[in-house]
Nucleic acid binder design. Structure first.
Lengths: 225, 225
DNA sequence: GCAAATTAATGATTTATTCAAG
DNA sequence: CTTGAATAAATCATTAATTTGC
């Protein structure tokens, strides 16, 4: 009986909702089907979790011996019908407007608002909005970088000015980017798990069974690499 | 009237819930206070959003010409009353057990389960679990890297080596790092916004007012940088 | 013209870095 | 100085453009 055995047992017990520790851990409910029951549009593929090897496996990764220690990993494999958000022109337009307006990392509330608005033009979720801003910001940055590099590189040869030019270019870029940045200084950014539930109803009776309403939302893949 | 003007107007209108586009955008409700109404323990600092300049600004970043072209460094400013999760011994123990058991990037459901279990030993949220695994994984990796570097560095000294050693070390590190990866091929991993709502009750009557239960969860900061 | 085959964009995820609380 | 929290960078994967052979 090695340590790994113990760990393994523990892990299994944990996932199976067995009382694994001394505390009064009342056995949870059978852990519902949880199959496609999850939120509708979720690409959660339980099948693959159960039967990892199914799809054509496009990924190679043969090289670079990937050895993962312990568990038999859950495979979240793309499920066929995996659909990613496909923004409409209106949605893109609004998002770009907001971006130009200075929005870079909208907070939970802002994302919610944006999502609601954009929802008028097509199916969309909050995470799509979040990702869009992250990606757009990052890719604008790349673009700027490329541009300034290209700019500085080509005129390179003459005398001194090239350098000057380079610096100037950089300065410009920075300014430009900053220019449209939000007017407020940067401050604390934080992630948050936020819930849509209307808190207004709290006024009436206090729900004893305060069902976990706080949400979740995180990576859906069972096991990382 | 420049483009920026228009954009600005649009943005403002957007945040204020004014009908900004032609579509039948029925004016939303006054957009509740939304101040501290947000989830309880959230470090949402509205103050800083309003009054950016407050903290002593500690960041230097002078050296190492950080030509981060665009952005002006993100200043994550802590807000005063911010309280971060302080894990108990039991919690840490369980988390490490799970980690040893092979858990690296738990999915939404797993995180939920873990959170519930750990909740018995102290206050905790899903995001804490999420972050813990991310950090632990990353820091284990760093440790491995450091170790292997140290290992390869000591026995090395002879002649040309220094350079060679460096390269070799890097190679080793990579492998080592991979070494503890999961045994399963890597495949598609997806993020998911998942909700805790018990899906069991769906059997009875279908709740018409399907209140948005899908959660949210994203960055809570008002404006990026 | 059109469908398989490439390539370009970009949505979604993971990994690396950074910041600061305790 | 450890590590929770957050952001940025890198990467993966899928959809849409575009090209190519017929």
């Amino acid at each position: 009986m090695t340590t790994s055995m113990k760990v393994h047992h523990f892990t299994r017990a944990f996932w199976e909702h067995e009382p694994f520790l001394t505390l009064g851990c009342k056995r949870l409910r059978p852990l519902a089907p949880k199959l496609p029951t999850t939120t509708t549009s979720l690409p959660f593929d339980l099948k693959t979790f159960i039967r990892p090897e199914s799809a054509p496996r496009k990924q190679v990764s043969s090289l670079h011996n990937n050895k993962d220690p312990p568990s038999p990993q859950p495979q979240v494999e793309t499920h066929p019908g995996g659909t990613r958000w496909n923004p409409t022109q209106e949605q893109i337009g609004i998002l770009e407007m907001l971006y130009k307006g200075g929005t870079r990392t909208p907070n939970a509330q802002q994302i919610e608002q944006i999502t609601v608005q954009l929802g008028k033009y097509g199916k969309i979720e909050g995470k799509n909005v979040f990702y869009w801003f992250q990606n757009h910001k990052a890719r604008e940055r790349q673009k700027q970088k490329r541009n300034s590099l290209a700019f500085s590189r080509s005129p390179r040869t003459p005398t001194i000015h090239s350098v000057v030019t380079l610096e100037a270019a950089k300065g410009e870029v920075v300014d430009r980017d900053e220019e449209e940045g939000s007017p407020y200084k940067k401050k604390c950014r934080r992630w948050v798990f936020d819930c849509l539930e209307e808190q207004s109803m709290s006024s009436s009776s206090v729900c004893e069974e305060e069902e976990h309403r706080t949400l979740k939302l995180f990576p859906l893949h069972p096991e990382g690499r």
